[in-house]
Simulated assay, not measured.
Amino acid sequence: MAWTWTYETADGATVGRSEAFDSRSDAESWVGEEFNALLEQGIDQLRLFDGDTEVYGPMSLHPA
């Protein structure tokens, strides 16, 4: 399966999707690298998918 992130606004509206990653660790590492760029694009939260199955989310990009 391919691992992807969906990008969402604070109200949960999907506004995009990441590239596909071969592993969960690759997907999670990518978020760490792109965190600030995602915030600058107006992304508020993410959801991680393994194929069509949601693994977790929403994960806020803002401090608690």
Rank of each mutant, 00 (worst) to 15 (best):
Q41A: 15
T9P: 07
F35P: 05
E34C: 07
R47L: 08
G32K: 01
V55E: 12
E8S: 01
T4R: 14
A10W: 03
A10Y: 05
S25Q: 11
E40C: 02
H62M: 12
G57W: 02
V31H: 05
R17L: 07
T4K: 14
L39R: 14
W3A: 03
N36W: 10
D11A: 08
W5E: 01
E8C: 02
F21Q: 06
A10E: 06
H62K: 15
A10G: 05
M1F: 13
E8Q: 10
S29I: 04
D11Y: 03
T53W: 04
G42D: 11
T6L: 08
N36C: 05
E33S: 08
Y7V: 00
D52R: 11
E40T: 10
L46R: 03
Q41V: 05
T9I: 07
L46C: 01
S60A: 14
G16L: 03
S18I: 04
L38Q: 07
Y7E: 01
H62E: 10
A64L: 15
A64N: 12
D26Y: 05
H62T: 12
F21L: 07
E54S: 10
T53E: 14
T9G: 03
L46F: 00
W30S: 08
L48Q: 03
R17Q: 15
L38W: 06
G57N: 03
L46V: 02
V55P: 00
R24P: 04
A64D: 14
H62Q: 13
G16T: 01
I43W: 08
E40N: 08
Y7K: 01
G12H: 05
G12F: 06
Y7L: 01
G42V: 11
E40K: 06
R47Y: 04
R47P: 01
R24M: 08
G16W: 01
Q41W: 13
A13N: 12
V55M: 09
G51K: 06
G16I: 01
D44Y: 11
T4N: 10
M1I: 13
G42P: 14
D22Q: 12
E40Y: 06
S25D: 12
L61Q: 03
E40S: 12
T6V: 08
G32W: 02
